[in-house]
């Protein structure tokens, strides 16, 4: 079993780094572009990775991340600076990815079924093939289950944090992640991983 520490933004305690960030945030809110760039640098990896995992496509993820930061820039003056910034940005990312996911056609990263057809079941799959199958299993999940399981199992948020980010109850999140884990297990078993 994995033990997870409660992050600072859930406890309300602020480290020195957090206090500095609050100042950067205040400058960005007042229209300082260089302060906003610091925010982008701080969160770009997290946002782009999350978008990529939720959308399954590098190009869509880049478009989504751009949109996330542009929305953040536009609505930063409405952000309540007494609240933690990260969940706000992560929620923005999930919402943008959901919007893009609704509009786009299904993206297939690799022809996973073709790989399976040509593979020897006794031969170990290459890491590239493994990656493609995991991504396919993830993309087959309904959007809400995918968001919950990615935030919990890949991004490492606790159930309570995921519930806050997604705006749902912990019970709902637990139900979503357990269903998603069972589906992933089934999908990987089917592909003999």
């Amino acid at each position: 079993m994995e033990l997870r520490a409660t992050p600072l933004w859930m406890t309300g305690v602020r480290s020195e780094e957090e206090r500095e960030f609050v100042q950067v945030l205040a400058r960005a809110i007042s229209g300082d572009v260089s302060a906003f760039e610091q925010i982008v640098i701080r969160y770009e990896r997290r946002v782009l990775n999350l978008a990529w995992r939720l959308l399954g496509s590098g190009e869509d993820a880049k478009d989504a991340s751009q949109e996330v930061f542009m929305r953040a820039f536009r609505f930063l003056h409405k952000f309540d600076s007494t609240r933690p910034f990260e969940p706000w940005l992560i929620r923005l990312t999930v919402n943008v990815c959901r919007d893009i996911g609704r509009k786009r056609t299904v993206t297939v990263l690799l022809d996973v079924d073709a790989i399976q057809a040509h593979s020897d079941p006794h031969m170990e799959l290459s890491s590239e093939e493994q990656r493609a199958m995991l991504q396919k299993a993830l993309q087959e999940l309904p959007q809400k289950e995918r968001a919950a399981v990615v935030l919990r199992d890949i991004e490492g948020f606790s159930t309570a944090e995921v519930a806050e980010i997604l705006g749902s109850s912990e019970a709902t999140v637990r139900s979503q992640i357990s269903t998603a884990r069972l589906k992933i297990r089934k999908a990987l078993k089917r592909r003999r991983l």
Partner: peptide
């Protein structure tokens, strides 16, 4: 087993070049 494999996605991360490209586009 499936969870261990699934969580290996964590190790895959975007490249520095992609991050720089994103930052330029955003700014």
């Amino acid at each position: 087993g499936s969870q261990a494999l699934f969580k290996s996605i964590r190790q895959e991360t975007v490249s520095v070049a992609e991050l720089a490209d994103l930052r330029v586009r955003v700014m």
